[in-house]
């Protein structure tokens, strides 16, 4: 085979393979969107309805508008409107993620430059992440009830900070490692304080890594289910928990409403994901690759 044909064959193979995976990924996503526009009887139809002939906005209206307006007509409803869940989810995940990334970056800097924790200890940090949350669920809920943190935004945020911090440290450290120490020394000679050096010299250089870390941790906190299920009651509800409420015992599962809510849950992450995709790859090397 000539080199030319080989290359052509490779291109063919490449796009077939990519195309197949593209379909595998895109189809379920398409299905969520399509379902959110389907009327009730088409959610679980035999044979399946691939695109509704009579698309409707009812699912969105029912999920996102005020309770009383649709009460009279809707079969399945949640009393707690997702706006509150959305607000809680936004506050919890943004606050937790910001603190985690900020603190994680500082720790990573300390580790990278001053070895405030040895590398082995750093790895040990990962253990926090690796304890399945279910393992500590009961003591946490008892402890939280006693110190008044159950059913609060703060309580949930603290848990998320602790469980995601290892990732933040690990991801940002690999970027800080890449910044030549000479730059800092230069800044120090010019009389910049440690904090100023971090803020004005180091941070701009590792921005892409920090951004990638931010997104990854946002994903983890935004979609967390188990802790949110166990540690919330009436005052706080997050979106993944809200989603499970659209479920009927005699009407069947309310797929259309769930889909309408799911679209709302997923869009913010997708938008952020698109915006920062360039930074993402670099952030995921966890210090295991050397910069060329």
């Amino acid at each position: 085979m000539s080199r030319q044909t080989k290359k052509k064959l490779y291109t063919l193979f490449r796009f077939t393979a990519l195309g197949i995976w593209f379909c595998i990924v895109a189809f379920p996503v398409y299905w969520i969107v399509a379902t959110s526009f389907k009327p009730d009887h088409e959610w679980f139809a035999w044979p399946p309805v691939y695109w509704s002939a009579t698309p409707t906005m009812d699912n969105y209206k029912s999920v996102w508008t005020s309770y009383t307006k649709t009460l009279a007509t809707q079969e399945a409803e949640s009393m707690q409107k997702p706006w509150i869940a959305l607000q809680n989810s936004l506050i919890i995940s943004l606050v937790a993620t910001t603190i985690t990334v900020f603190f994680g970056t500082l720790l990573a800097y300390g580790v990278s430059r001053y070895r405030i924790l040895s590398e082995v200890r750093m790895f040990n940090l990962l253990m926090f992440r690796m304890i399945p949350p279910i393992v500590v669920a009961v003591p946490i809920s008892i402890y939280y009830s006693n110190i008044g943190l159950i059913d609060t935004v703060t309580g949930l945020a603290i848990i998320y900070i602790i469980t995601t911090l290892p990732y933040a440290v690990w991801m940002t450290k690999s970027f800080i490692d890449e910044v030549p120490i000479e730059i800092e020394q230069a800044a120090a000679i010019l009389g910049a304080s440690k904090w100023r050096t971090i803020g004005e010299v180091i941070f701009p250089l590792v921005r892409s890594g920090v951004v990638a870390t931010f997104l990854f941790i946002l994903i983890l906190t935004w979609s967390e289910y188990l802790m949110a299920l166990i540690l919330t009651k009436t005052d706080v509800v997050t979106l993944p928990i809200q989603l499970a409420k659209y479920e009927g015992a005699t009407e069947g599962r309310v797929y259309g409403r769930q889909a309408a809510l799911a679209v709302g849950i997923t869009i913010p992450l997708v938008v952020i994901g698109c915006l920062i995709r360039k930074h993402l790859v670099r952030g995921f090397s966890f210090g295991m690759v050397k910069k060329r």
Binding site: W21, F22, V25, A26, F27, P28, V29, W31, I32, T35, W43, F44, I219, W222, S223, Y225, L239, P240, L243, A244, R253, Y255, Q258, A259, A262, I265, T266, L269, V270, G273, C274, R277, L280
Partner: peptide
């Protein structure tokens, strides 16, 4: 962008969607 989409989807949503599929 599409390849990273599944990671951005909430696991509970994945479960319910595949139940339909």
């Amino acid at each position: 962008v599409f390849f990273i989409l599944p990671m951005l989807t909430v696991p509970v949503v994945i479960a319910y969607t595949f139940e339909m599929l």
